[in-house]
Design a protein around this nucleic acid. Structure first.
Lengths: 167, 167
DNA sequence: ACATCTAACTAACATTTGTTAGTTTTGCAA
DNA sequence: TTGCAAAACTAACAAATGTTAGTTAGATGT
């Protein structure tokens, strides 16, 4: 709190004119982005497009939110564990719900023939880990064009790295 | 320290008969695995095989080390920032060196025609993020066969998720 | 001009945390 | 059995941390 206060040019005690507690800062930041992801997922789910396009839309969603909310997203990988009580239950509920929805879309892709029939637990984890860490990459490469980043992520995550002339 | 002591069935002060400081626990754990990765990389580099096979070997290396050192590896994503002084310089040096070597191998793959000519910064980041987070997935799925995990990671990270009958 | 509200301040608090000093217990070698 | 080193203990420390209480300066509306 003293560090935050210093960064804002005031005393630690003064912060309490604006917030309830240290916990409330963390839970507000984390639950807000969790809701952004949940809303984005709902939007993608309601689209009338092939599932593989939904998967691409999800990658785009991550890239877009990462660029827009770079700071709060950086809390997701390591800080959510410090949430307490109602907040941590709410957060993990949203996260689990999101991951389930993500896997469902991948399963649809397999049904539709656009993805190989593979271990969804592993591959969904693989994609989501990369997307989770995108924030740290972006914070060191802020000059990149966002559309190029989106395109390249879609390519490498979904379509792989291999040269197309070999298979 | 009091938590660690409780877990070991002793008082916090007693820990200091075995260690120098709290910092030294962290830096010993982190530098040890950093060295494991560095050694593994050196072994892969010295192999006389096509670069794409080296890339596969690196994925296997991560899977193997993740399974073997699950607990200390879990410190890598979030705790290395708490290293201080010489330790943090040593750690980041090893990490940067490792990532450079990883990218070099990917570049060789492109030269040899086994990978598409793509943004190495993005794709290497993508693979390494997944591998970094493997520990958390594994700690929830300890029953999986390690060879299947290796194979599936290689497939999804390098060869992509797409069905092969479409392109 | 006055009352009100906002948002800053100082001072202090109770805990928590990493660590040290000094002492006692334990286990093994002689 | 004695002697000694290893490793446990108790007590206490200084610093850091989240927070509260009470106060004050500055802006705003009447």
């Amino acid at each position: 709190m003293r560090d935050i206060a210093k960064a804002m040019g005031m005393e630690a005690a003064s912060l309490y004119n604006h917030i309830d507690s240290k916990q409330s800062i963390l839970s507000e930041l984390l639950l807000n982005i969790a809701k952004e992801f949940t809303d984005g997922m709902a939007a993608v789910q309601s689209m009338e497009i092939p599932s593989i396009k939904k998967l691409e839309a999800l990658v785009s969603l991550h890239v877009r939110l990462t660029v827009q909310y770079n700071d709060s997203i950086s809390l997701i990988p390591g800080e959510w564990v410090h949430l307490e009580g109602k907040s941590i239950r709410e957060f993990t509920k949203l996260r689990d719900h999101y991951e389930l929805a993500f896997k469902d879309i991948m399963k649809e892709c397999i049904k539709e023939g656009s993805l190989r029939d593979q271990n969804i637990e592993i591959t969904s984890f693989s994609i989501l880990s990369t997307l989770r860490w995108l924030y740290s990459w972006f914070s060191k490469n802020k000059n990149i064009d966002v559309h190029i980043l989106e395109e390249e992520m879609i390519q490498s995550l979904i379509y792989g790295l291999k040269a197309t002339n070999i298979d």
